[in-house]
Simulated assay, not measured.
Amino acid sequence: MRQIVLDTETTGLDPLQGHRVIEVACVEMINRSLTGNHLHLYINPDRDSDPEALQIHGLTTEFLSGHPRFAEVADQIAEYVKDAEIIIHNAPFDRKFLNAEFAKIKRPPFDDLCGSITDSLLYARELHPGKRNSLDALCERYGISNAHRTLHGALLDSELLAEVWLAMTRGQDALLMDFEQTGSTPGVQGVRTEKFDASSLPVIRASAEELTEHEAYLDALDKAAGKPCVWRAEASA
């Protein structure tokens, strides 16, 4: 199962007002393990950021002017996210910007490139109703240090969200996880589980040495209790 934790930074709040993507960061997980195969791009938007946005991300027009435009990195982004589950905190915001960027260069929308898109904010709200579920709040709740986060940066935020996501979904490490997602039924937020078949589990029998040690342990229990231990009582019954 390939999952990509994605974040963007933008020049403002609305692509319909001409705002653009200026940073894209993706962190790859395969079978819930971080691979270190990140994608991190700064993008020249050919415009200034709104003062409020600049205060958040700190990426100046001068800095961004030395980086490629979106059309030059679109293939790289498309190839990286192809068919993966994309995890985004407040997904509608990033999706509308990425869809707008692909539309500008007359390409299919970003949504069509992915296997699925999961909104980690919605997941957190279902898990923690009535509580703050910003990335900072979730880091605090799950004991993930974000002390080095003074500005919003897409790569740092993606790395933090990946840790948060693994903590929030820790129960998915169970035996019932279906990493291939074949022949299964839909679960929460796209997670799929298989009907459990105990016959598929290997039987590992105790060695003679282990059986001897086990009997010695039960003898000690019998002596301490002054009667046969529950294990032997149940076995004889």
Rank of each mutant, 00 (worst) to 15 (best):
M1G: 03
T10M: 11
T10I: 08
L16N: 14
I22Y: 02
A25G: 05
V27C: 06
E28D: 08
M29I: 04
T35S: 04
H40L: 10
Y42K: 04
Y42C: 12
I43T: 08
N44T: 02
D46M: 12
H57C: 07
H57M: 01
L59C: 11
G66Q: 09
G66D: 04
F70P: 00
F70R: 13
V81E: 01
V81Y: 03
I86K: 01
H89L: 08
N90E: 00
F93V: 08
F93M: 12
K104W: 03
R107N: 05
F110A: 06
L113C: 04
C114F: 10
L121E: 09
E126R: 15
H128V: 07
P129E: 02
K131L: 14
R132W: 11
N133T: 15
S145M: 05
S145F: 01
L155V: 02
S158W: 02
A162P: 01
V164H: 10
A167V: 06
M168I: 11
D173A: 05
A174L: 10
L175W: 13
Q181P: 05
V188W: 14
S200L: 15
I204M: 06
A208R: 13
E210K: 13
E210G: 02
A220P: 01
A220E: 13
L221N: 00
D222G: 03
A225G: 04
K227I: 00
C229Q: 08
W231K: 13
R232F: 02
A233C: 14
